[in-house]
């Protein structure tokens, strides 16, 4: 495996994520103080800020894995909607059906991930096209059948989004668990190292005896499962799933943007979940700061586009090679 594919050890690899988080936090704090909204800096204010990270954060972890193997997943937004709708349809306000609803959503996630992975790894379809196509199929089927699928989640399931453990929102714990799991696999297991190898150079990895197809399919399944979990969280947060919850949230492109802002290469082989979470934090603070400054939402959208491009350009502008 080449040196570039292996994440550098020690604290060095956390330098960029830390810098991002500190910058975003300073801007957030300065805005809160400057606009005399000190309550945003209280425990509950900060927890509110962190809770904004959950839905995007979970799916972005999955997106990180897919980008690391050199693929991409554009179907996550529609899969989030499918998961939210299926979960609330199966649960239908019934506490006993919670486990079944969660299982159904995760099972659909695994299935969609397997389809994506097989299309990319076995049928050699461009990952952009394969996952875009799968996303469109999910969107079409869901919009057509939504009227027969409507339902709601029981109050006891809403604990996931609103419950607290020792003052810490349960949802944030969920995000921490997902991030820790992915971070552990990437940094501490042989599978994680091989994943970087596959993303760095598929041919070399195959020649080194790695079953590259399995890693590509596995990463797609992981991404789809995280999308399903985000969908479950959103169903719990909103009380019911709707067929537009994922697309309106812009989770497909946002999840890619935060991963790239966090320093993971779109071409794969380099990066990690720490950067991704820093990227998600940056997005959450941008939203919160715009809110505090009461910026017109449309102007906010314009600025958001500029910030995404500017942040990515600040890494890429020095590269010599041409990019697609």
């Amino acid at each position: 495996m080449s040196g570039a594919a292996i994440p550098r050890g020690g604290l060095a690899k956390f330098r960029l994520p830390l810098a991002l988080v500190i910058c975003a936090a300073v801007v957030y704090a300065a805005t809160a103080l400057g606009t005399a909204q000190g309550e945003q800096l209280s425990w509950s204010g900060v927890m509110g800020l962190l809770q904004r990270m959950v839905a995007l954060g979970i799916v972005a972890v999955g997106q990180t894995l897919v980008l690391l193997v050199g693929s991409i997943d554009l179907s996550v937004a529609n899969l989030i909607s499918v998961s939210a709708v299926i979960a609330s349809h199966v649960m239908n306000g019934n506490t006993d059906a919670i486990a079944l609803g969660v299982l159904a959503a995760i099972a659909i996630g695994i299935l969609v991930g397997a389809v994506n992975g097989v299309l990319v790894a076995k049928l050699k379809v461009s990952p952009l096209i394969a996952t875009l196509g799968v996303g469109l199929v999910l969107q079409g089927v869901l919009t057509t059948s939504y009227e027969t699928l409507a339902g709601s989640v029981p109050a006891s399931f809403r604990v996931l989004a609103y419950g607290r453990v020792a003052g810490l929102p349960l949802a944030i714990l969920l995000l921490i668990v997902v991030v820790a799991l992915a971070g552990f696999v990437l940094a501490r297991t042989a599978a994680g190292y091989r994943l970087y190898g596959v993303g760095g150079n598929v041919q070399t990895a195959r020649l080194a005896g790695i079953r590259t197809d399995r890693f590509i399919i596995g990463a797609h399944i992981a991404a789809s499962v995280t999308a399903a979990i985000s969908g479950l969280y959103l169903a719990s947060w909103l009380g019911a799933g709707t067929p537009w919850v994922g697309r309106d949230g812009g989770y497909d492109l946002d999840s890619i943007a935060v991963v790239v802002i966090g320093g993971t290469l779109l071409s794969g082989g380099r990066g990690g979940v720490a950067g991704t979470i820093a990227g998600v934090f940056v997005f959450a603070t941008i939203d919160a700061v715009f809110n505090m400054l009461q910026i017109d939402p449309f102007l906010g959208q314009v600025l958001r586009g500029v910030i995404v491009v500017g942040a990515v350009a600040s890494y890429t502008i020095r590269t010599k090679a041409h990019v697609a």
């Binding site: 958001r304 586009g305 990515v312």
Partner: peptide
């Protein structure tokens, strides 16, 4: 010039 991958670049302009 900025070497930003076009999918990210045009996503940004899409939003803006």
């Amino acid at each position: 010039r900025g070497k930003v991958p076009s999918i990210i670049a045009t996503l940004g302009t899409l939003l803006s």
